[in-house]
């Protein structure tokens, strides 16, 4: 990539997330007072450039999905900023929010729960268009939807069928067609293949890749499967307990992970090309702490094999340690 292209990329940040916080109040005691908060997302920052795929990995409950939903404003963040196309959309409401959602769409995790069982597939896919373009010609709409269905690899007859007549992978294709219907700029894919068979996973991933080129899409790809993320992403953000601990392009993450948590994650990926060789496997001790009561300082210090004394008092921030590789760890200060 030439330097001019790099510059061009940098000026075209499609999405910027700054210090995003999503704390869910915990209520209890008399009169349901707020007695605490689950800090599902606690200060997440990243940017997505136009046309790229940012992968977000982390174990269950680390706040990946919550981050995705906060960006689409399905949840209202309790702090921080979401900037989409240079507009702060953190607190927009009503009509403007609805307009913005035309440009950001989501592919959901559960292909069974994310389609209304009472609607025909044709209606499911045409509904977004119908919502924004009320006066669209019915015949035109139908052809458009049929084209979309064919594009995601479904037969045209699917238009007249109901979701329960399809398999998991096909249902996920319907969900993708629905997300595409409005020709969005950003698609948040919230673990789109984690509920599918391994054999079907790759088909859906390839479809997503093809569509990215064809429709000029930008993805925020959320997953917990490291090989899936590696296949899909240009850059990868690693999350732990509501924080991003490392962001870098995928080669840096896989070949030269810097944060101790990333190192442990990567060491857990089986590598078929190194069969027989003895690998160094970093096994983390203990469990993920509760996000309701996260550890002081670095969220990872309770399990970190390289923890120092001051890790429990200083909360590290993301710093550019190598060009393009941001790490939140005091080892690199």
């Amino acid at each position: 990539m030439s330097i001019t292209q790099m510059k061009d990329f940098q000026t075209h940040n499609l999405l910027e997330v700054e210090n995003l916080q999503m704390h869910f109040p915990v209520k209890g005691g008399f009169f349901r007072r707020t007695i605490g908060a689950v800090k599902a997302v606690d200060g997440v920052s990243f940017t997505i450039r136009k046309g790229e795929t940012l992968g977000l990995v982390g174990e269950s409950g680390c706040g990946k999905s919550t981050t995705g939903r906060s960006i689409l404003r399905l949840l209202t963040p309790t702090g921080g900023k979401v900037i989409f196309e240079n507009e702060d959309i953190t607190n927009v409401n009503g009509k403007r929010l609805r307009d913005i959602r035309q440009d950001i769409q989501m592919v959901f995790q559960d292909p069974y729960a994310s389609l209304n069982p009472m609607q025909m597939v044709g209606d499911i896919v045409s509904e977004p268009i119908h919502n924004y373009y009320k006066n669209k010609n019915k015949e035109e709409l139908k052809t458009e939807v049929m084209d979309l269905l064919t594009r995601v690899g479904l037969p045209e007859e699917a238009y007249y069928k109901y979701a329960h007549e399809f398999s998991g992978g096909q249902r996920q294709r319907i969900g993708i067609a629905r997300a595409l219907a409005l020709k969005p700029k950003l698609i948040i894919a919230d673990e789109p293949v984690s509920a599918l068979d391994v054999s079907v996973q790759s088909q859906v991933l390839n479809l997503l890749n093809e569509l990215q080129d064809e429709f000029d899409l930008t993805y925020l790809f959320i997953a917990h499967d490291l090989s899936v993320v590696k296949h899909m992403s240009d850059r990868i953000g690693v999350m732990y307990l509501g924080n991003i601990v490392e962001v870098a392009d995928k080669h840096s993450i896989y070949d030269n992970p810097m944060h101790p948590y990333t190192q442990a994650l990567i060491s857990a990926v089986p590598d078929a090309s190194k069969m027989g060789e003895k690998r160094e496997r970093i096994v983390l001790q203990g469990d993920v702490p509760s996000p309701e009561n996260p550890p002081s300082g670095c969220p990872f210090h309770t399990r970190c094999p390289k923890a120092l004394d001051r890790c429990s008092s200083i909360k590290p921030t993301l710093k550019e340690v190598k060009p393009g590789q941001h790490v939140a760890c005091i080892l690199y200060d």
Binding site: L74, R101, F108, A113
Partner: peptide, 10 residues
Amino acid sequence: EYILASISIG
């Protein structure tokens, strides 16, 4: 999730 989906499609 289809309710979340219907919010996100406007």
